[in-house]
Nucleic acid binder design. Structure first.
Length: 599
DNA sequence: GCCGTTTTCGGCCCGACTGTTTTCAGTCG
């Protein structure tokens, strides 16, 4: 609204201040209301980027639920600003001009005016622009939201590989939120190093996956893929590849902060490199070089959110390099078989885990009896399964593990570990070290009790518990349910602790602080479920857990052999939450893991 | 509206692409 209202050329800076302040508030580790309760207006003003004016507006909002300044702006503007916010390519100035000329206040009237051909008569507009606006409205209505990381992963890897193999390409990386392993992806950004820009651009926009060319220049092109996702391509000379990768990986906030750091050191940072006062290029060919030139440790993409990572990188303690690595997992503690809702036998799952993903152990965690939909196991079925697993383990020890069904995986879904393992496959010919753990995914009832008695659970190697029903209970009840399950000495892990499904459902309400406290107190592990539509715990909660030294595990929740590939997403999530190898217990060899769990 | 080892005024991250107002404003990432 400010951008629409003011002629003042400095208004952009005011707008920026509000945006920065809102980002800062969103990223606070404690609530803005708590800060105000504890330290009042002074406390608010101590938050960076919040000064006197914004602090008192926050105070006003906390006390009255309203901000007078905002209400005044709203009454003055009378344009339904929120409706236009997601309309791509049309900003506040354009909306204001249309309003001034035609009195258009909302989206439906804009659509009407455009289809009636009224926009083209406005000075600075044209038939072409009118068409563009109609197009954007149509797209907005279609609701192109964000895509799940796991949904786009194979396709992105496929395009990345294709670019890498194209003649004249020195390097190609899918950057953006994809490289940062965000749980959802808005669009895909490819960065290519090459001196033959035009040739690469021509190739890119002619790829079969592309449905529409949205824009094209000498170094950047924008397209829409067949499945509706937008993709950008940046082609850049080899000696600028590092700075371009840094720039295109984001986040935007991280990039802005980095350019400020550069200015503070008398440099100038853009996607072409770092430049000194004489416009001489001093870094840019590698990403490491860019960070090092600013006296920073290289920052892993997953934590580039301007959320404290730059400060940490400054102090030179090699702390960032201690994040869990993509080949650190030794086992998977949530795996399903066709005894319940899985699709393959225990043997098949074990083989895939071992041969394709290089794991040393898995836990078979089929559902239990109260989960009727999945045909959950009862007490005796669980014990039978444990016996069967024990026999399987004996066969493995004797080297009689059946290695016949070699499973092929989609290339994009293979983990780094899998690639490493394949290279030394010959060494893996003895199967004697793999172990299958008897386990269960026990159902937590409404009162926090379990549907399997402890004397049965204690015969299993490891037990996880999870909530699968009554999501609408109030937060206190839901939290107590989990706390009680954690206090049960037979429960080692809480699976997918908040029950969310990204873009599908919110999950049940949980007091996460209490949950973490109790996990610490009872030595119960919390899971990062790596299935790409769960990624539960989410990054923010992982960070809280790490701060409180609550131990975590990363599980695939595999229902099919190919699902072990999901572990990559879980590790990405853990890294986004600043988790170190030592925070994730299934990075331990089996014996150490078993001696670390609570039973 | 925020901020300060160039400090209480005068700056504020930066470049590419688009359309069209042929030199730049608007928008985006």
């Amino acid at each position: 609204m400010l951008e629409m209202e003011e002629e003042n050329p400095n208004i952009m800076f005011k707008v920026r201040s509000y945006k920065t302040a809102s980002d800062v508030i969103r990223n606070l580790s404690s609530g803005i209301d708590e800060i105000y309760e504890d330290n009042g207006l002074k406390g608010l003003m101590q938050i960076p980027s919040i000064g006197k004016a914004i602090a008192s507006k926050i105070e006003e909002y906390l006390m009255t639920g309203k901000i007078k300044y905002l209400e005044e702006l709203k009454s003055k503007i009378s344009i339904n600003v929120d409706e236009f916010y997601d309309l791509e390519g049309i900003g506040p100035k354009t909306i204001k001009i249309i309003y001034d000329n035609l009195g258009v206040k909302d989206l439906s009237n804009l659509e009407k005016a455009a289809s009636e051909g009224k926009l083209r008569n406005i000075r600075g507009f044209s038939e072409k622009k009118e068409e563009m606006i109609l197009n954007k409205i149509r797209l907005l209505k279609k609701g192109r939201g964000r895509y799940l990381l796991g949904e786009v992963y194979p396709l992105v890897k496929q395009i990345e590989t294709r670019l890498l193999n194209f003649e004249g390409v020195k390097n190609a990386v899918a950057a953006g939120s994809f490289r940062r392993m965000k749980e959802t992806i808005g669009d895909i950004d490819f960065v290519v190093a090459s001196n033959e820009s035009k040739k690469i651009m021509d190739y890119f926009i002619s790829m079969p996956e592309i449905s529409e060319i949205l824009g094209r220049g000498t170094s950047k092109s924008f397209v829409r893929l067949n499945n509706g996702i937008d993709a950008d391509l940046l082609v850049i000379p080899e000696d600028s590849f590092g700075s371009a990768l840094q720039y295109f990986t984001g986040s935007k906030e991280h990039g802005v902060a980095m350019r400020k750091v550069a200015l503070g050191k008398g440099f100038h940072l853009n996607e072409w490199g770092i430049f000194d006062e004489n416009q001489k290029k001093v870094a840019g060919s590698t990403e490491e070089g860019v960070y090092h030139m600013l006296d920073l440790e290289w920052i892993p993409p997953e934590i580039r959110e301007n959320n404290g990572e730059i400060e940490l990188a400054k102090n030179g303690g090699k702390r960032l390099s201690r994040l869990i690595q993509y080949n650190d997992l030794k086992g998977d503690l949530q795996v399903h078989s066709n005894s319940t809702d899985g699709t393959m036998s225990i043997e098949d799952m074990a083989l895939a885990a071992k041969e394709t993903f290089g794991l040393e152990y898995i836990a078979i965690t089929d559902h239990t009896k109260s989960l009727k939909l999945t045909n959950g196991l009862d007490d005796s079925q669980l014990l039978d399964q444990a016996n069967k697993i024990s026999e399987l383990n004996d066969r493995i020890k004797q080297g009689r593990f059946d290695t016949k069904p070699r499973l092929s995986t989609r290339s994009g879904l293979e983990s780094q570990k899998a690639r490493d393992e394949k290279e030394k496959k010959t060494k893996m010919s003895d199967n004697k070290h793999f172990k299958i753990l008897s386990a269960a995914e026990v159902n937590i009832m409404n009162d926090g009790s379990l549907d399997i008695p402890n004397n049965v659970l204690d015969k299993l190697d490891i037990v996880g518990a999870a909530i699968h029903s009554s999501f609408s209970l109030p937060i206190e009840v839901q939290t107590d349910r989990l706390l009680k399950a954690m206090e049960n000495p037979s429960i080692d892990i809480i699976f997918h602790p908040t029950g969310r499904r990204i873009n599908k459902r919110e999950g049940y309400p949980v007091n996460i602080e209490k949950l973490l406290e109790n996990a610490k107190k009872t030595s119960t592990l919390l899971e990062i479920d790596a299935h790409y539509d769960r990624l539960d715990l989410k990054d923010e909660y992982v960070k809280m857990a790490v701060q409180k030294d609550v131990k975590l595990v990363i599980d695939s929740d595999a229902h099919h052999p190919i699902h072990f590939a999901f572990l990559t997403f879980g590790i990405g999530q853990a890294r986004r939450g600043w988790a170190k190898k030592s925070d994730i217990l299934n990075t331990l060899p089996l014996e150490e893991l078993l001696s670390s769990i609570k039973r």
